[in-house]
Amino acid sequence: MIEAEDLRKSYGDLHAVNGISLRIERGEAFGLLGPNGAGKTTTLHMLAGAIRPDSGSVSIDGERDPTRSEVRNAIGIAPQDLAIYEELTAEENLRFFAKLYGLAGSRLGDRVAWGLEFAGLTDRRKDHAGKFSGGMKRRLNLACALVHEPRVLFCDEPTVGVDPQSRAHIFDRIEEVKRAGCTLVYTTHYMEEAQRLCDRVAIVDRGKVLADDSVDALIREYGGQSVVEAEFTKVPDDATSLPGEFDDTTLRIQTSEPFAALARLGDRGAEIAQLRVERPDLERVFLHLTGRRLRD
């Protein structure tokens, strides 16, 4: 279990993290979502023990000092930057990081082979990482985080900037890791990833947690109603009495029960050419909580 209590971190006048408290259960997949500069990465680094908070505390499985080697052996991190050595081969990268965690002998060989297979790079094991595509580097970046079999994996935007194939590969592999019981702390800009993977999500902005709950609960709380948009080939006679906004041939209804609304339209004799149902999702929750103002 990971517990963070009132974490704070400033860089000069900038309060990057301003009192974040979290509790992540063992084996849970926990998402940290937020706009650019919200404090996600700083929080992740403090949770992983890479940087020291100005105040507040972090404990992992009850251990309050994340710099202890027992704690560090339990942690793996896949940073947003590609934290691999481009002049080393895929195999050398995995071997180097595995050796830092004390792996040796046959276990070292087994784990390096596992890492190459995990990243889909067994055939390219002798190639320098600098020659790899962005997707291959991302996969290797993740494999290096997992080569020592950590109990907790911190992933900072692990699928950013890769093609759909690599993204699917990485995502499938992370789901495997989750199924194996590894605790996941995951930051991403891809809401569908968080929605699919995470048991619980914290929306962070300006260094504070705005909301922290399961995805469904957040959607219920902040997602609003579904939107049903229907374009008619035959407009019902009493079109003006229809619920929602009607514009010549198109009706837009906001409702918490979209299928019931559709059934009522059919009862009124409406003939529908196109239909679109937009259910509330995490992206809407995100925008609702953090606003639509650009954060560049």
């Binding site: 680094h45 992983a48 023990g49 890479a50 710099t67 080697s69 560090r72 052996n73 942690i75 793996g76 991190i77 940073p79 947003q80 930057d81 590609l82 934290a83 691999i84 050595y85 990081f97 830092l100 965690y101 004390g102 290096c144 985080a145």
Partner: peptide, 15 residues
């Protein structure tokens, strides 16, 4: 530091 490998080293079980 700029490529992120230092972060990975900082999280590894080495002082």
């Amino acid at each position: 530091r700029t490529h992120g490998t230092l972060l990975r080293l900082r999280v590894a079980p080495i002082s």
